[in-house]
Design a protein around this nucleic acid. Structure first.
Lengths: 333, 333
DNA sequence: GTCTAATCAGACAACGTTTTCTCAGCCACT
DNA sequence: AGTGGCTGAGAAAACGTTGTCTGATTAGAC
């Protein structure tokens, strides 16, 4: 501390080490300094005074924020924290901070949050954005590089990285078909979800290919939704159900328990995401595992590239793979 | 945009509105301006030029960061996102940003992260910190106000807000005792967890008061831990098990299913936290519900107060309450 | 020994904003 | 009518850092 109550700055160091401010800056930033004597004097003074750089001033001068914004629809959905973990890992390695905001599954608030974030971020990652295409189209005007996950953005200049849900769905349907199921139900996600669109598409083509019939309903993304909408599918005589995600599957499982219908003997259930509890459910859930951490990592890679080169990265699609546990079996017949 | 490629600044506005820079600043910050004509000229120019303030410059000048750091042990643990939601709600209302970092349940990394965060935050909220008291004691030197949740900090100058886990535990034990259980097992949390200490304390006093006996083990905070450690308790002949949290309880439930021991007829299970899936498990989990969002809100209140007044707020304790579902019943005898 | 070239530390401007200070203008009161 | 006080807009400094530019010092070549 200097005599004044303020924080120590490079000026204090310069004074104490009897060198110029520029030299302090150079030493502290590891730029080449010829005179090793000066350098050590500076470093000594810095530690003596307990110097810690003022990041805000540094960012201000450099014209950056060193901050990346991430918008997720719902942190309480176990899917997103995993994406964040993958993201955080890489982002902090690149000396950036991560500003996380939760839009509460609200498309309007999502749009507002992005606009607000844009003011204090070098770049933004939109996880599974729920906003309509028309809102999405307003974002380039913010002048901030944006990468979307789990969403196609038309010809908007955004990087995108998604998961090949269609393929995952094909694997799930193939698995069920092989077990002998002829009638499959789909507990679909929210209509605003791009992934849900992909999954429905994969479902119908796979079903057509394999000669099984499909009933589907729009449920949502929570366990409550799965719990509420399952009977609708049961009425249609399905022998297996695929859920939009594991949470919905958990809701369905709970309803089946109430109805005293055993899983998998009376009904097979397949989830999506492979959240950690999936392996511990009763029965352990067969589900399509998605590379969540990798999704985060690739999103950062795309954004990073755009920040460095100005080039909008190409669209990317990550593979999904079915994990067979014990919630699926041959139909009772 | 001005002719140069740069972003528009208040200088551009001043030029266009033909007023001084100070006036622009005053108008834009809503400070009293006498001449309404000037004010409207400024506002008009600002919208025409599409002005968006440079937050970094503003924060720099004001000597603040407008950012609050939050450290959580594991985002994938469903407990924390709820705390964050309560927190985020209030924090963003106060024109602050939330910087969230995940320490991966690693005490060393936790300490490092806090030190790093300190450089770019006005204040820090430590959620259930896992670091030892000795590390905690080094934090005041960072010169940043800190509030801890779920942790007593001795005489360190931190605000703290916790949950009365001991009372929750008493309720759980009372519930089980009333059902007729005489032998209760506890699947404890990580030794570094303060909450776990509180819970053990509440458990032993409640057990003594009610005349039931207790066996306990140190499991951890994940479903894997519960799954692995449950047999240890079963060997001791308990008729009911209380888990450190719902995730651990889920692991226990899974193990019981494997062992074909029905819940609650063969063993009663009680969790802690009341995470959303708890209600959908098989059977729906009796658990001690914790005010997670409120915890976040109170933490911010404490930090906010400290930032405004410089006064370290008093320790706070929030109530917990048992939610009885279907994983508990009278013992088989 | 002198002149040129090269090297490197120090002086200083700049980043965009807020805020303090200055001073012009006006009103009211003597 | 002159002066004192007051209001409010404009000028300018300041925040801490980085980076460009300048000037000095030294080494090398003739």
């Amino acid at each position: 501390m200097t005599r004044s109550g303020k924080r120590t700055t490079i000026v204090d160091i310069a004074r104490q080490a009897e060198v110029s401010i520029s030299t302090v800056s150079r030493v502290l930033n590891g730029r080449p300094v010829a005179d090793e004597v000066l350098a050590t004097r500076v470093r000594k003074a810095a530690t003596e005074l307990g110097y810690r750089p003022n990041m805000v001033a540094r960012d201000f001068r450099r014209g950056v924020t060193s901050t990346i914004g991430v918008v997720v629809p719902d942190l309480a959905n176990p899917f997103f924290p995993h994406v964040l973990k993958g993201l955080a890992e890489e982002v902090s390695a690149g000396d950036h901070r991560l500003l996380v905001v939760d839009s509460g599954e609200d498309a309007d608030q999502e749009l507002q949050l992005v606009a607000q974030l844009a003011g204090s971020c070098d770049g933004i990652i939109l996880c599974s954005p729920r906003m309509p295409q028309s809102s999405l189209a307003t974002l380039p005007a913010l002048g901030v590089p944006i990468v979307c996950t789990n969403r196609s953005v038309g010809d908007l200049p955004f990087g995108t990285v998604g998961i090949d849900s269609a393929s995952g769905m094909r694997q799930a349907v193939a698995h069920l078909a092989q077990l002998g199921h002829q009638q499959i139900g789909y507990l679909g996600g929210p209509g605003t979800s791009w992934s849900d669109g992909l999954r429905r598409e994969g479902l119908s083509t796979a079903a057509a290919d394999l000669g099984v019939s499909v009933s589907s309903t729009e449920a949502g993304s929570t366990s409550d939704d799965g719990h509420a909408k399952l009977p609708e599918l049961l009425d249609q005589g399905v022998t297996a159900v695929i859920a939009f995600n594991d949470l919905v599957a958990i809701g369905a499982l709970a309803r089946l328990r109430e109805l005293e219908m055993d899983v998998p003997s009376r009904l097979s259930v397949v989830g999506f995401d492979d959240i950690p509890v999936a392996a511990f459910l009763g029965p352990p859930l067969t589900t399509v595992s998605l590379p969540k951490e990798e999704l985060g990592r690739r999103a950062w890679a795309g954004l990073h590239q755009q920040l460095e080169t100005g080039q909008v990265p190409q669209e990317e699609l990550l593979p999904a793979s079915l994990v067979v546990r014990h919630s699926t079996a041959a139909p009772a017949d």
